[in-house]
Structures are given as structure tokens and as C-alpha cells.
């Protein structure tokens, strides 16, 4: 099987800083991780490769230090890793991101077509869940989001996917190629075997820029190719606080009486 995984490096912690002028994230100095859902997508790719053989290509678009994410991907079994890094890619919203990734994928697929495209269900920095559907649309391949279980039938070039919806579990089937966005349950990341760790030292990320080798239309990249604009950033206003009671002063009885009063008034205490 020929599998492509698209991963994103995201800032790890809560101590996130914003550039007040542009309203964009200051990435420098913030510890980075591979987006957690993408780790599960990588783990799934690794499991499928072990079972059925094949090849895994991993791509990421980000600043130069995003190559750390690709080195981690090699530990999961990636055979080829590509970093898309260029100032012209910066400031991309989901439309420009899906354009850049889809064009890159088309370029890479010239060598050998992919059977399966794996994405995370969403990236935890923006939580948009838009890039996977966007890339599937651009590639014209069937999209299956929120996958929790993936079964492959490579001889029949078919896939069966369980996806989680609000109402239950849906089981879908499709023929290759398919783009799947992965939830945590699709596969657990294994401890990296030593051989993969050693390989991780040797495989170097290839760096693609806006100049090449992928033939991009410049106007569709980065900030320029992004229809959405950050207009203003501000701290959310709080609603004015109400009354404060100290149990140590008024006692438990009084506190309970006041809560009951509210429950009664809101009509949620009907016998």
C-alpha cells in the first residue's frame, strides 16, 4: 500500500503568546509537538505498512523547525518525509493550506499513486477540522472524517471505516484512494523499535519551497492566498459577577435556601 500522512506541528502548552499587531501566533520559543491526532494517523500508517507492506510518505507545512515532527514520523515508519517551508507559505488559512498540501500531494503522486491519505481529525491549535476535507475536495477523492477504526482489503483495493457521529457509529466502505481524518482510536502509537530509531537518524527531510519542485500558483499561497483576514483580536469581556456568599458566615442552610430559590424561580424544581 502506498500511504500519505499529513501532519502538523503545533504549540504544546497553555503558555501561548500572540503578536498583538498581527493577531498571529508567536511560535518561536514555544515547545512544539506533533498534533496528537496526527500521531494516531502515523501509528495507523505504521500498522498498515507492517501488515500489508508498502510505503509511507509524510508531509508537513511549517517553519524550518517543523522538521522535528518529520524525524518523529520516521520513527513511526515513514520512508520519505517532506517539509514544505517558505515565507511565502506563511499566514495561510485553511483554504491556502489545503491548496499547498494538495498540489504537493499531486506532485508526489506522479511517482506512484497513493491508496490512502491520512490526516488528523483536527489540529489542536486552531481546532478547525477543515484541512482534511479541503484536501479531499481538491484531490477529488472520497472523504471519511472522524474515523475510529480502519480495515483495509488491499487485494480488493477497498477500505472499511467506522466513524463516530453524534448519533452513533457509522460503517462506510469505499475503494482506494480515500482520504481519512483520524480520531485517537484508529491506532495506538507503539514504542519505536530500535531499527526505526536508527533509520530516523539517516532519513533526511526533503525541503520543498514555493520555488519548487512543486509548480505552485504564487497567488494561492500563504497570506496572499487566504480569503480570511484577522480583523481584530481582543480579550473576552466577562459578564458582571453576581452575589457572593461565604458558607463560613451564613451557614450551609442559608446557602442551600438561596440555591433552591433560584431552582424554583427557573422552574426546574417541579415535583
Amino acid at each position: 500500500m502506498n500511504i500519505l500522512v499529513s501532519i502538523k506541528q503545533v504549540p504544546d502548552t497553555t503558555n501561548i503568546r500572540i503578536n498583538p499587531e498581527t493577531g498571529t501566533l508567536i511560535r518561536e520559543g514555544v515547545p512544539s509537538i506533533v498534533n496528537p491526532y496526527d500521531v494516531h494517523a502515523l501509528a495507523l500508517a505504521g500498522a498498515l505498512k507492517r501488515r500489508y507492506g508498502g510505503r509511507i510518505t509524510v508531509i508537513t507545512m511549517g517553519p524550518p523547525q517543523a522538521d522535528a515532527a518529520l524525524r518523529e514520523a520516521v520513527e513511526y515508519g515513514a520512508d520519505r518525509v517532506v517539509l514544505l517551508s517558505d515565507r511565502k507559505f506563511a499566514g495561510a488559512d485553511t483554504l491556502a493550506t489545503s491548496y499547498t498540501l494538495a498540489e504537493t500531494i499531486k506532485y508526489l503522486a506522479r511517482e506512484a499513486p497513493f491508496d490512502l491519505y491520512l490526516f488528523g481529525k483536527q489540529a489542536i491549535d486552531g481546532d478547525t477540522a477543515q484541512v482534511g476535507p479541503g484536501v479531499a475536495t481538491r484531490l477529488g477523492v472520497p472523504l471519511i472524517t472522524y474515523a475510529v477504526r480502519v480495515e483495509c482489503f488491499p487485494e480488493e483495493k477497498k477500505i472499511r471505516v467506522h466513524r463516530k457521529t453524534e448519533r452513533g457509529l457509522e460503517v462506510l466502505e469505499a475503494s482506494f484512494p480515500v482520504l481519512i481524518t483520524c480520531d485517537r482510536e484508529v491506532a495506538e502509537p507503539p514504542f519505536a523499535p530500535l531499527s526505526a530509531l536508527i533509520q530516523a537518524q539517516t532519513i533526511q527531510p526533503e525541503v520543498f519551497t514555493a520555488e519548487g519542485p512543486v509548480p505552485f500558483e504564487r497567488d494561492r499561497l500563504g497570506l496572499k492566498g487566504s480569503p480570511t483576514r484577522v480583523h481584530r483580536v481582543f480579550t473576552p469581556e466577562l459578564k458582571s459577577p453576581g452575589e457572593r456568599l461565604l458558607v463560613s458566615e451564613v451557614g450551609v442552610e442559608e446557602a442551600v435556601r438561596r440555591i433552591l430559590e433560584i431552582l424554583r424561580r427557573k422552574g426546574v424544581l417541579t415535583a
Binding site: 488559512d93 485553511t94 483554504l95 489545503s98 486552531g126 481546532d127 478547525t128 477540522a129 477543515q130 484541512v131 482534511g132 476535507p133 479541503g134 479531499a136 475536495t137 481538491r138 472523504l143 472524517t145 472522524y146 463516530k164 457521529t165 453524534e166 487566504s226 480569503p227 480570511t228
Partner: peptide, 23 residues
């Protein structure tokens, strides 16, 4: 911004080459 709506919105916005703001 449900499972269904998010799945659909990203595809529509891409086909129409327009912006989409989530949540």
C-alpha cells in the same frame, strides 16, 4: 459546527474557493 456540518463545510468552502471560519 456538528460532525456533519464540519465535514460538509470544509468541502463546500474549498469548491467555492472561499473562506470558512470554524466555531
Amino acid at each position: 459546527a456538528t460532525t456533519l456540518g464540519r465535514d460538509l463545510a470544509g468541502s463546500i468552502a474549498t469548491s467555492l474557493e472561499t473562506g470558512l471560519t470554524a466555531d
